[in-house]
Write a protein that binds this DNA or RNA. Structure first.
Lengths: 248, 248
DNA sequence: CGCAGAATTGATACATCTCAAGCTGGGTGG
DNA sequence: CCACCCAGCTTGAGATGTATCAATTCTGCG
């Protein structure tokens, strides 16, 4: 509803929480300085739309804190989430005028935005940004292809288990813990958002979550807080190989 | 069964059919010369496996002629195709040791391979290869996300129509014709391969192809040769917006 | 307290899968 | 040159997983 806050606070890149993982990860001091000049922060409240598919987009950005989603919508309203954006993930495509997907904040969100024109110039002049962006894009492509397997071939139960495993693992990673044995985390998505991500209806999501709970694979505390008593047990439910395709 | 032919013929890059679209598209004369030194050709027969997921892979490559597929297989045999590789498409990931997917030749195939080590060195030294690869990877990511919508939300009939539309459009593109009005092309995939790509069974593919034929959307001449009397009619069946998300 | 959004649960419908039986066309060997 | 063979494909009947439609029931919050 309201315009997003625009924070022009001169946040120091050196102290940035995503400094070592974002598109700027490889930058040298001088490159960071250039970035500092073209960057600005925006923040959005949970539920706000960051940008609509088809809209003109004259910035690219990194997620600093919070979670955003990328979704595609068909004319008749069917929706498919095609990306989940976490801190350090990149939004937008250099060389493209308009947004290809709806971007929505699912939690409160802070993004570090770069004006597109100067960002593109920087990419063509210094290699480090483009190098890192290539690496990140290749990772996203792998993730998209893993999701294609899930969407095309997994059962509803396997889909839910896979999503929970991914969130648990990522959460553990952020907390620098190992996703092993007993794990605890909060779901950042509603049942409907989970459904949009998994290519299911929200009723089926709800039923399968209940089934995993009934079978002791997970324990629910409230709707969103999830306890996984045995991570290996959860992994067995995903349908993936035991080593979980852990490419490094 | 037999080892692929390895053609060490000194093919001239200047005369290469994919020169302007492949990963080398942006290279200057001197860069091409470097590439010439590390490249070699391999050819495979239709049906041959190029590489198995998990295998060590010490080259990257461009498809020169023919079609290859990227597939993922679950332990119990469920398969999902995650990419269709056409002439100029890139195979392999710089910085990765092992293949992440099975790569299979669906037609006779010729690939232009680069030894990985020198290719990576070249990427870090000169910008043009990396720039082009980033562009291509971003395109593939978009394609993967479009496919996620198809896999997650489209009906079997829409899936078939979408696949046919994509093949028709690409085929027209190769022949420098416009995919408009009446269109004719050959299916490069078996029903089973189509099923693997679309997240369906081969029986469902067969039934829906028959249904589209019965409804006059397509005309079959043999199993593989397809006539589309009215391309707009086919597009209506895909479920996409009328303008077909034609990002340029 | 009571409301509204989120989630659960139930009953039924339906699309796709599964299992099974033929068909078809191009190649091969007698 | 014909009969056979076989992979690829089609078609049918029935099973099944998920969607759809419709009530409730939670849960947090003003």
């Amino acid at each position: 509803m309201t315009a997003p806050d625009i924070l022009n606070v001169g946040h120091d890149c050196g102290a940035c929480p995503i400094r070592h993982r974002a598109v700027c990860a490889r930058c040298e001091a001088d490159e960071l300085q250039t970035l500092e000049q073209i960057k600005y922060y925006r923040s959005y409240q949970a539920g706000q739309t960051v940008i609509w598919s088809g809209d003109r987009m004259d910035f690219v950005a990194s997620v600093v804190t919070g979670i955003a989603t990328l979704t595609q919508t068909m004319e008749d309203g069917r929706r498919q989430m095609v990306g989940l954006l976490l801190p350090s993930d990149f939004v937008g495509r250099p060389g493209r005028q308009t947004a290809a997907y709806d971007v929505t904040a699912t939690t409160d969100l802070v993004m570090c935005c770069f004006r597109k024109k100067p960002f593109e110039e920087m990419m063509s002049k210094t290699p480090h940004v483009a190098q890192r962006l290539l690496e990140m894009t290749l990772d996203e492509l792998d993730a998209a292809r893993e999701w294609m397997l899930l969407l095309g071939r997994k059962t509803a139960r396997e889909k839910i288990a896979s999503l929970l495993a991914i969130i648990a693992r990522r959460d553990a990673h952020l907390k620098l813990k190992n996703a092993k044995g007993s794990t605890v985390f909060d779901l950042p998505l509603t049942r409907e958002e989970m459904a949009d991500y998994l290519g299911l209806t929200l009723e089926t999501v709800s039923r399968q979550v209940s089934a995993l709970k009934r079978d002791g694979v997970i324990v629910l505390e409230g709707k969103r807080h999830i306890v996984v008593p045995n991570f290996d047990r959860l992994m067995e439910e995903t349908g993936d190989d035991s080593d979980g395709g852990m490419l490094v």
